[in-house]
Design a protein around this nucleic acid. Structure first.
Lengths: 242, 242, 242, 242
DNA sequence: AATGAATGAGCGTTCATTCAT
DNA sequence: GATGAATGAACGCTCATTCAT
């Protein structure tokens, strides 16, 4: 049994090393930038060995995405456990999302390329499931907190909306905001110098719009962001600042 | 002179034909899916002729993006002239954005690929300028209406935000929302069956959050959407429904 | 008749302009460096017009060679008329050869490429004849002076050699020497800093070897070189020094 | 270890086969005549395999030159060891040069094309070094014999020349002579039917001109040529005559 | 006679994947 | 299980020449 365990552990370690090397190559040049020959020559493993781990190039790429999506899921889970009002817990998840983007600034690139370059079709059903699950569970966490807000009376949607609609709103705001921050240079032209903070304020405006109590006029959500960053994500924070 | 004119018109027509053929190829398979050999064999023009129009593959791709960006700009301009309150005019632009996405559902794919796959670097400065201008002017139109709202007293930001911050918020919500609609299948799982309408409601919630008058409780902005669709974009609407 | 003359003159002028533009392109990059598209775009004439003058690219190249070969022939003819002993006249032709190489340093490149790159076969019989004639007549001029040397008693070959053999020797020495000077960087490593003068001395050694009177111990042939340069090729010299 | 050795030997053999096939293609049509597609189709190896050996077309060409330059170097080294007077040893090297030209009549074509067609720039520094070294060492061998001649008293330059100047002279005569023999058809018109012998006589005339003892009137250098051919290069000779 | 858009065979090179050892 | 040489289809692009206008 020990032998089998060791082999398995070695497999996993090697897989991590391969991905670690593949990631910057992919970031640099996208799908075509990730080159199996160069990857091989930069690692101490041979082509065949790499192909024993990943049946094709596309599998490497989707695994790159899964790697960071799993980090995000873990961060969302941690954030949702934050002790506070429902709206503070939403803010905590927002904090997780922001820190995630700062920790893995290239995650979007990987994820979008998968959807854009017809990579999806060539990946294994299994890995696609893993990837979908990560997304689904992240959404589920947010949904949960929205429902908690309704249950606690902080949020009253008055039949004018479903909880999912609110999740969709937060998700849009966040995905769109981070995308724009990552890829557009128009923000500077707009004169927005602290885009992450602005994005947080925009969350607040949206939540104020549905009257999720306590409103931003009653609580300093910037302070909540600071508290969550330190209390919940102190470790992750160190990685960013150093 | 007539000869010259005719030649010029033929050039433009041919360029349109090339792009028309290239677009689905690109949509289908991204950067690698657009293949100069296949493109040639599907057109009645030779390779050389295509290269007389576009100096490299990347120029074709950026031109695909410019084509639709120019449509969007025109729609935004038309929408901004809508006669109504400042918030209704914002709604009109939102209508334009939604119809644009429905008319050119693959625009995002093209635009994102350009930013992802180091295509940008290989394009001509001239075309990059055209593309940047389109984005800048679209943003400018929205900025203008926000300022009009402030000037008219409908919107009072109380020094808690700059107009640009609001533009960033609307832009995030819209870009994120349409991206999610286009590329994610999680929306169905969320049980959101009319995502476009939901997105419009989310706009409203955001604008309610900053107290842009008249609030959504006072005016039926769904009705405004319908009116703008018909009155301003009747022609474009036909293309979608047929 | 005037019209015909003018047309003819215009043709010749245009031909000269085309060649003037083609020459540096060819020098720069050899056969593949001479590009009909670039040539066209640098001239005010169209492709078709250029093809009216030269039926193919190869014809341009051979004409480039002919242009300078005709200059050389003229210089050899002038040199052979120098008033002096037969050996001085040989030195005068040597002077012509050296000045020619300095005036048209790229001539070898053109001539060799013609022979190397299977250009020859694609040229017209007519132009090949012109080119061969130039070479033949240059050789003929040297042969003539050798025979004059024999006739005058300055040179006595004693049946140990034909005049042509001597011509072949001088030609080898000169062609080899100028080739090495033009293309090799080993000369500097050898420590030869004034290769042209060294080459002239080597002519002298060869002519001393066949006892062509007066020997280099009796006459300062460096001084003859100077005299011929000034008296015969004063004009050409100006072009080099300025 | 045997396996590694065998692999290495196979690599070298294959490289030789590739070059053997590339050589006539290059000889036939120069740079453009050597065509990677045709080369592939004439060999039993695939494109990729060829590119594993040579990183680009230019590397193949320079290797063609190196192949024969190394043969020449070996022949020069062998010749320089000939037992005889210093002038006889020069004659022995001349014999080597002549046999080399006859064995590899197309070497000049390859070498010149490398210098003419901007091939040089695209080759690896390593191979360029190898090529330069071959030339340098050949020159060094001749220099050495000239110095031996001076040391032995057979040659007295009287400060009128450096040994290098004499090397330059022999080199010019030889390079020019063989070039003319290879590429010009004017020799026949000149009535020179045995150009190689004539060239040898011209060497002698040059060496007589600097009074390198014993003079050609004292020793039958044609006989030396015959002796060296048989005694030193008997093996190589067989290749030519058969 | 002059034009220059159109042609299309041809080029050198790349690279994901395979499979004999 | 590991290797890495071999594969060969595919790619983006070039350019001498033609010919309808």
């Amino acid at each position: 049994m020990n032998t089998k365990d060791r082999k398995h552990r070695e497999m996993q370690e090697r897989e991590a090393i391969i991905l670690e090397c593949a990631r910057p190559m992919f970031i640099e040049g996208g799908y075509n930038g990730l080159n199996m020959d160069r990857l091989t020559s930069m690692l101490e493993y041979s082509k065949g060995t790499i192909y024993n781990h990943f049946s094709c190039k596309e599998e490497i790429i989707i695994t790159l995405a899964i790697q960071t999506l799993e980090k995000r899921l873990a961060m969302f889970e941690k954030a949702s456990l934050f002790q506070g009002t429902s709206r503070e817990r939403i803010a905590a998840i927002g904090t997780a999302a922001e820190l995630f983007v700062k920790l893995y600034p290239d995650h979007f690139r990987v994820e979008q390329t998968i959807r854009l370059d017809s990579i999806w079709d060539k990946t294994s059903e299994e890995r696609r499931q893993v990837m979908s699950n990560c997304e689904r569970r992240c959404i589920g966490i947010v949904s949960g907190v929205v429902r908690d807000g309704i249950a606690s009376g902080d949020l009253n949607l008055n039949d004018s909306a479903t909880p999912e609609e609110i999740v969709f709103g937060l998700w849009s705001l966040s995905f769109g905001g981070y995308s724009i921050i990552s890829t557009s240079n128009s923000l500077q032209e707009l004169g927005i110098s602290e885009p992450f903070q602005m994005l947080r304020h925009n969350y607040s405006r949206f939540l104020d719009g549905i009257q999720w109590k306590p409103l931003s006029s009653e609580v300093d959500y910037d302070a909540v962001f600071e508290r969550v960053s330190e209390e919940v994500f102190g470790n992750e924070l160190q990685q960013i600042t150093t």
